[in-house]
Amino acid sequence: MNIKSMLSKVNAWLHLWLGIASGIIVFVISITGCILVFEHEIKSLLNAKLNVEPQEESKLLPPSVLYKSVAEAVPGKEIHSFWYHGLGKSVAVSMDSDSTVYVNPYTAEIVAYMGHEDIFHEVNDLHRNLMLGRDIGKPIIGWATFIFFFLLISGMILWWPKKWNKTNRDKSFKIKWSAKFKRINYDLHNVLGFYTLLIALLMTITGLVMSFSWFSRSLYWVTGGEGAPRRRPPKEVMAPSVNAALVDADKIWYKVRKEIALYNKNEVIVHLAEKPDELIYACTDMHAGYWRDLYFEPATLELSKRSGKRLGDLKFPDQVRKLNYSLHVGAYGGLATKIIYFICSLVCASLPITGFYIWWGKKKKKKSPKKVLAVS
């Protein structure tokens, strides 16, 4: 047996048994991923009451007015932030509660109270932690994703035709729907696995970035970055503000929309200052899964050097890192890429099932007794 043949057998053996070992978890990750791809679209359809009649942006009410309305409706709760979703959406107001309050941005009328733990919260917890908690579930998801990354590579090696003749090309690129179920199942595993390979690799790599800090640092280095990727800065003691937190929130809200936002300027998150001597957080330029973090110095309300840059101003490694979530969920290209990601996630969910059936069929074939010819 030559080295090439031996390596091929080792690859096939690892592909089989690692696939069986991780199959259930990969199926769960992929199915929940299918659902989460369209989370915002489904929520928008199911919660039409959160939509409002869009008006001129000059009629949008500042955070201080919305604060007063929410404080009167829900007394005794500490309010943290205001998320303006645009001219046709209500504002999400977060506070010390198990619910988020949604407010009409033009009238300050309370539109709805919605709990944090809806069905998507459960699906997301299953996708990220198998509902086992962060300490237990996240490492299991992370290593199952790492195994799936290897399976995609080893599967590509197994898929690669030994000869590029017409017969092998048809087997590698086409599903023979007229064949028996066993052959169709094999084609679904082999052919669909190939067609979804690039997107599956992209989803897997971005998932590993979120699972392991060592993988995130490695990818940052591979893409040309130096040092560690930037993270949200720790709380920093600054010269204190002389204004009330609501006054600063209003000023920052106006400033972000008029001077800083590059696009979607009416989609802004503004946090209330927790302490008068700490940086004040806001967020803008939220588009296709990307967002720009802003930090304001409390005394001057000038942008801190810790604030994130516009996407086009970032170096390539930082752009890749910043777009990791968008690349993971397919939000970077709008509805078209989300549909592609949905289909690819569905195929990824099917791979453990079709792969198991291929193995089970071979196992049954080996166990079937040989026919013994009677001797007369």
Results as ranks from 00 to 15, higher is better:
Y263M: 11
F296I: 07
P276M: 08
D277V: 03
I260K: 00
L219C: 09
G312L: 12
V270A: 04
F296M: 04
K235G: 10
W221A: 01
R257G: 01
E278V: 05
W221Q: 04
L294Q: 08
P276C: 05
K305H: 10
R232D: 12
I252A: 10
V270I: 15
G225F: 05
V247W: 10
K251Q: 15
K309P: 10
Y281D: 02
R231P: 04
L262W: 07
E267C: 10
Y290N: 12
L272E: 05
A288W: 10
W214S: 14
Y290Q: 09
Y295Q: 09
I260N: 07
K235C: 00
A228C: 06
K275W: 07
V222D: 04
S241L: 01
G289T: 09
E297C: 05
A288E: 13
S304N: 12
K305Q: 12
M238C: 11
T284P: 04
V270R: 02
D248E: 08
Y254V: 14
Y263P: 06
M238E: 11
M286N: 13
H271Y: 15
A239P: 07
L311Q: 10
R257K: 04
P234E: 13
L301H: 14
L219T: 10
R230P: 01
M210N: 14
V209D: 03
K235P: 09
E278T: 15
G227L: 02
G312I: 13
R217K: 09
T223D: 05
E274M: 06
W253V: 09
I280G: 00
A239R: 15
W253D: 05
M238D: 06
G227V: 07
P276W: 06
E302G: 12
I252P: 14
A245H: 11
K251F: 06
H287K: 15
I269A: 11
Y263G: 11
P233Y: 00
D248L: 06
K265T: 09
E274G: 13
P298Q: 09
A249F: 02
F296V: 02
F215C: 03
S211H: 12
S307D: 04
T284I: 01
E236H: 14
A261F: 02
A299C: 07
A244N: 13
P298M: 09
M238R: 15
A299K: 03
A249D: 07
G225D: 02
K235S: 13
R217D: 03
N243V: 09
A261V: 08
